[in-house]
Amino acid sequence: MATPNTPLWEVFIRSRNGLAHKHVGSLHASDATMALQAARDIYTRRGEGLSIWVVPSTAITASDPAEKGMMFEPAESKIYRHPTFYEVPDEVGHM
């Protein structure tokens, strides 16, 4: 007999070093409580984190890889957004 599909969740963990929550993988669970428990068992067996977020995969809207040129090119062509674009004389020292 075919097994009915269980919803997919994306798991984010904040490690001890104070960084932001980071995507670590996904899992299946029928509700949020079970998703959190499963995330604890699957992704933090060796003290990988101090906080877990689980998000239904269907709640994520992703950018289209085919449009990545159009999406990200504007950032590449604006070199004046980087500090190295500006000239500061050596005598001024570190800035």
């Binding site: 075919a2 097994t3 009915p4 599909n5 269980t6 899992l27 068992d41 699957i42 067996r45």
Partner: peptide, 26 residues
């Protein structure tokens, strides 16, 4: 328990290619 975890990471990776875990397990 780790082996089970490895199986689950891998099913999740396989699913990103478009086949559900249920189909794979079946």
């Amino acid at each position: 328990q780790d082996e089970c975890g490895h199986g689950l990471y891998l099913y999740a990776a396989a699913e990103t290619l478009g086949t559900s875990r249920e189909e794979l397990v079946d």
